[in-house]
Computed example of a mutant assay.
Amino acid sequence: MKRIILPALAMLIGVQTPAHAINDKYRQQLEQSGCTQMSELEGCDIHKSQAENAKAGFSNPQAPAATDSATTPTPYAGQWVAKSDSGATVATIRIDAKEQVWVNGKRVNAKRTDGTLQFRQGKITFTIQGDRRLTGEDYWTDSDAGTKGPIEIE
């Protein structure tokens, strides 16, 4: 009995090959399309670009972006003016493509919060909406004076 089991076991171990879930070509198609194996089952097309699949509603948060942030414009970039209700300029704001913010020429820290870019200088908090289709959503508030006003792009 031992004479049969040992050679059969040795032959079984020698014949076994590693199992791979996907091959290199399929993996590259998934990476280029921004799909995952699960999203492909839901309709993501591996023969389309990542941008086309994102437009169709499929996105892979683990996939690297198709373009780097230097070439993709941020909705916040540009020259902005915070105005009071009377129309006087409260602050001039400059935001670059890397979302670095300067208020009246001074660099301030900014953070993204719930679809907006928020930053503060002194007692004034500035909030700029990321969705440029929404109008009248960019504003500043002065917590000390209790005033509020619009922010407009130049």
Rank of each mutant, 00 (worst) to 15 (best):
Gly149Val: 02
Val103Ala: 04
Tyr26His: 09
Thr89Lys: 11
Asp144Ile: 07
Arg94Met: 08
Asp45Met: 08
Cys44Asn: 04
Glu152Trp: 09
Ser59Val: 08
Pro75Ile: 00
Phe58Ala: 01
Cys35Glu: 01
Thr92Met: 04
Lys123Thr: 13
Thr135Leu: 07
Tyr26Arg: 06
Leu6Phe: 14
Ile151His: 03
Pro64Met: 11
Ser86Lys: 12
Thr67Tyr: 06
Leu41Gly: 15
Ala21Gly: 05
Ser84Gly: 12
Thr125Pro: 02
Met38Ser: 13
Gln37Pro: 05
Glu99Asn: 14
Ala97Ser: 10
Gln129Cys: 08
Ala88Arg: 07
Leu134Ile: 06
Val15Phe: 15
Gly130Val: 03
Asn104Gln: 13
Ile128Pro: 01
Ala110Tyr: 01
Gln29Ser: 14
Thr127Glu: 12
Ala88Val: 14
Val101Asp: 00
Arg132Gln: 05
Ile46Val: 13
Met11Arg: 14
Ala19Pro: 01
Phe126Val: 02
Ala110Leu: 06
Ala19Met: 09
Thr127Lys: 12
Ser143Pro: 05
Glu40Pro: 03
Gln118Tyr: 08
Ser49Tyr: 06
Ser143Ile: 08
Asp131Lys: 06
Thr125Phe: 03
Ile22Gly: 07
Met11His: 13
Val81Leu: 13
Ser39Lys: 11
Leu9Glu: 02
Gly122Val: 10
Gln100Asn: 05
Lys83Arg: 11
Arg107Glu: 12
Asp68Leu: 05
Gly105Met: 12
Gly105Tyr: 07
Gln118Pro: 09
